[in-house]
Simulated scan of single mutants.
Amino acid sequence: MSLTLTGIPARRGGLALRAAGIVLILVAAPLAGICIGETRIPVGTVAQVLANRLWDAGYPVDPIDEGIIWAYRLTRALVAGACGAGLAICGVILQSLLRNALADPYLLGISAGASTGAVLVAVAGLGAAFLPMSAGALIGALLAFALVTMLARLAGGGAGARGAGQIVLAGIAGSQLFNALTSFIIARSANAEQARGIMFWLLGNLSGVRWDDVRLALPAALLAVAVGLWHVRALDAFTFGAESAASLGVPVRRVQAVLILAAAMATAVMVSIVGSIGFVGLVVPHAARFLVGVRHARLVPAAALIGMVFLIAADILSRVMVPGQVLPIGVVTALVGAPVFALILIRRRSAP
């Protein structure tokens, strides 16, 4: 009897409880993003608007409230959640592949490269007939990652603290280069109004997102999470090095290419929609490891969930921190991420 009570039924009960908790978080986080803002909106009003839009329920709702909820706050919350989950998965993938706790799309210059590609397409007139902003951002992200990797190898970066320092330095150099290219493109091709809008967008801007952006961001985030979940065993193996992964039967080059492409794609899509948002891919994976451990079967979904909640919370803070003004969301993530980055550096220095 004790085996029955503490065995398979107990495990099933634990799984059901965790699944219910995940569903609750998936519903509660976007709901908080809708209700909390410059003006508070009751949960009942949100539920009525969603029922009217999804099932034509016919509840009497103020058209202004309906427009704010459906066309502004709901899309903003969904894009913020997708962006947070996607960037968190990018951080998990890069930290595993590079065996570097400091790796993330922002610090490695991938976000800067994606910004350059997106701005080049938007401002220089390359996207009208040839490729969209997300494709330009993807090309820029891949070029930035290739440049940073090459610089780190030329500098003699390997395993250990020296390798970690070299790739961070290479990432800083790559970020500065692509940020300079972005500034040059803006100064050369953009008018004053375009330049002002682009500079605000580069700091991370969710104000202009619409349903077309949701239809782009959600699939990109889900694809990144799916790729990460599909390769959890390979990611576990890569934490011990590429040689160890190969000895365990992992097709190293093919898996590396797929994972890097997925990380670059997710970063490029998010940057093309909301601009460059830093430190999400750095902070969230460390928080997830603290909560669920280092096994990627748990780490990948936990990082995606925490990243979603983190960026929705950051978006809420960006709207309420300064009364009457919406801050760029990148400012909020930097205020959280920079101190955490410093703590990680100090901890790595004190580690044996």
Results as ranks from 00 to 15, higher is better:
R73V: 02
R73Q: 05
R73D: 02
L74H: 06
L74Q: 06
L74V: 01
T75F: 00
T75D: 02
R76D: 03
V79F: 05
G81S: 06
G81M: 06
A82V: 02
A82W: 02
C83L: 10
A85N: 05
A85I: 09
A85S: 12
G86F: 08
G86Q: 05
L87S: 09
L87T: 05
A88K: 11
A88V: 08
I89P: 01
V92C: 13
I93C: 04
L94C: 10
Q95P: 04
S96N: 15
L97E: 05
L98S: 12
N100P: 11
A101H: 11
L102M: 13
L102G: 10
L102D: 04
A103L: 07
A103G: 08
D104I: 09
D104V: 09
Y106G: 14
Y106C: 03
Y106D: 04
Y106P: 01
L108Y: 11
L108K: 10
G109D: 06
I110Q: 05
G113Y: 02
G113I: 01
A114P: 01
A114L: 05
T116A: 15
T116Y: 10
G117E: 00
G117F: 00
G117W: 00
V119M: 04
V119K: 03
L120R: 06
L120H: 04
V121E: 03
A122P: 00
A122N: 08
A122E: 05
A122F: 01
A124R: 03
A124G: 07
G125S: 02
G125N: 02
G125T: 00
L126C: 00
L126G: 02
G127Q: 10
A129P: 00
F130D: 07
F130W: 14
L131M: 14
P132A: 13
P132F: 15
P132D: 15
M133C: 09
A135N: 04
G136Y: 10
G136D: 05
A137P: 02
A137L: 06
L138S: 11
L138N: 11
I139E: 00
I139M: 08
G140W: 03
G140K: 10
A141H: 05
L143M: 12
L143K: 09
F145L: 14
A146H: 09
V148N: 12
T149M: 11
T149K: 10
M150Y: 15
M150G: 14
M150V: 15
L151A: 15
A152N: 08
R153T: 04
L154I: 06
L154M: 11
A155H: 01
A155M: 14
G156P: 01
G157C: 10
G157M: 11
G158C: 08
A159L: 12
G160W: 13
A161G: 07
A161S: 12
A161N: 07
A161K: 07
G163Q: 11
G163V: 13
G163A: 11
G163T: 13
G165T: 13
G165Y: 11
Q166F: 10
L169Y: 06
L169D: 04
L169I: 10
A170Q: 10
I172V: 15
I172K: 06
A173W: 03
A173T: 13
A173M: 12
A173L: 13
G174E: 08
G174C: 09
G174P: 07
S175T: 13
N179A: 13
N179R: 08
A180H: 07
A180I: 01
